[in-house]
Design a protein around this nucleic acid. Structure first.
Length: 406
RNA sequence: GGAGAGAUGCCCGAGUGGCUAAAGGGGGCAGACUGUAAAUCUGUUGGCGCGAGCCUACGGUGGUUCAAAUCCACCUCUCUCCA
């Protein structure tokens, strides 16, 4: 194949926004060779098979993948199903259950549907590491483990800290980086991408490739995106994430709720503004933070749902929270509930409508003044509603339902 | 293999026989204030029940007791020191 961009141009594009690059020279050399031979580079990205919800944090790396792809390289999306199938003992009590083959497949499909919003699926290779890992014999594993020392393993921050603080480290955990590194060997990866927290694992891949007689992969790490709380990295388990599959209103609203200090970074990592535009945005952030944040929310929403949806989400937001709005969301989710003859209490309705996980929680919401029916604050948790009643129920800041009692 | 320490609610952590659904902190949620921001203040934070109350819960199992997170036995797991 032929490449449009010269190696130098490619290098320029690919290295922007990258935290660590090991090494720049190697990358350039590979790009040159690939350019001359008309042979695309193999670019690897690994994914956890058990958490198929792609969120904005993942997109930082995926966007880099797309750049490689757009330049004509071969991107490989690797699903680490092997570890998923074995189960993960590190979680102590809640030992992650081993995923079945069906679950892995289902998750892979979910991934596909989502990464398709960013990558060109037709030119993305989807692979499972069980393909080679499950075929390894114990002797193969020993050979693999003999390539690394405990001291080197303990270089990883995570391990070093736990070791120092006397927190258990399972021996299998030492195998994970080796497995991940071996994936690079199996794929003959030219480049591996990951978040900065993956640096150690990516470096292991380099070492192993050398051990197995391959040229070591170039590694590129990208910044970690903080989640909605502005403190921790965005992750599903912390609940501070924005999934790219979420409805427009959700995405818009969630983005609006991030701390101001985070706006700059989100602009950097999640939008494709030019450096000049970014500078302008950051300058304005100090004086008109709300407008700048709304623009951010709109842009991000539009990326996954289109411009129209972005604009609509913004209008909905204004209606809901703006000074001129009526405090109601644009699209109310309906909850049709079957009402018995004696009626249904407010508490039950809140639970049945899915606005609270338990009756106790619903009562709390009412007691704390967080529940409204048709915009009126409710104080009687036992208030009865009957067959035929229709009203707008609000529980908490964000929970709205149009309730219809049949 | 030997000796010792430990396992408590989402997390950290107090609690050594009843007053303990379990102090305190963090986090979460709600309210006030705002820009669904931050900061601050207040409240709340196992489940069921309108309620009296009932159920579940302090690593696991069994036991002592009118009564156990607390005492005993065994088990599981973790850490430390020695070998």
């Amino acid at each position: 194949m032929k490449f449009e961009a010269t190696p130098q141009e490619q290098l320029q594009i690919l290295t922007t926004g990258v935290v660590d690059l090991v090494t720049r020279e190697e990358l350039l050399t590979r790009l040159e060779k690939s350019y001359q031979a008309g042979k695309p580079l193999v670019v690897k990205l690994g994914a956890d098979p058990s958490a198929p919800d792609i969120h904005l944090g993942h997109t930082v790396v995926l966007q880099k993948m797309r750049q490689f792809q757009a330049l004509g390289h071969e991107v490989v999306f690797l699903i680490g199903d092997f570890t998923g199938r074995i189960g993960d003992p590190t979680g102590k009590k809640k030992t992650r259950p081993a995923l079945t083959e069906e679950e892995v497949k289902a998750n892979a499909e979910t991934y596909k549907a989502q990464i398709g919003k960013i990558l060109d699926l037709g030119r993305t290779r989807l692979v499972f590491n069980s393909a080679w890992l499950s075929a390894m014999t114990f002797a193969d594993v020993l050979k693999l483990t003999s390539q690394y020392t405990v001291a080197r393993m303990l270089e990883r921050d995570d391990f070093a800290n736990r070791f120092k603080n006397q927190i258990p480290i399972s021996v299998v955990e030492f195998l994970y980086p080796l497995m991940q590194g071996y994936d690079s060997v199996a794929l003959k990866a030219d480049v591996e991408l990951g978040g900065v927290d993956q640096t150690f694992n990516l470096l292991v891949g380099r070492d192993l490739q050398k051990s197995y007689g391959q040229a070591p992969q170039v590694i590129m790490t990208l910044p970690i995106l903080e989640g909605l709380d502005g403190k921790d990295k965005m992750s599903k388990s912390l609940g501070n994430y924005v999934g790219i599959n979420e409805p427009p209103d959700q995405i818009y609203g969630k983005v609006m709720s991030i701390p101001d200090d985070l706006m700059g970074k989100w602009y950097d990592l999640l939008t494709d503004l030019t450096p000049a535009q970014l500078a302008e945005v950051k300058r304005r952030a100090g004086t008109e933070p709300k407008a700048v944040k709304m623009q951010l929310a709109r842009r991000i929403t539009a990326q996954y749902h289109g411009e129209a949806a972005g604009a609509q989400a913004e209008a909905g937001f204004e209606k809901l929270f703006g000074k001129t709005g009526d405090g109601l969301p644009e699209d109310l989710e309906e909850a049709r509930l079957a009402a018995p003859a004696e009626g249904l209490s407010l508490v039950r309705i809140i639970v049945l409508a899915g606005l609270a996980p338990s009756g106790g929680e619903a009562k709390r919401l009412i007691q704390q003044g967080g529940v409204k029916v048709d915009q009126e604050k409710q104080t009687d948790q036992n208030r009865l509603f009957r067959h035929g009643d229709t009203f707008i129920l609000q529980a908490g800041k964000r929970g709205f339902r149009k309730v219809i009692l049949d």
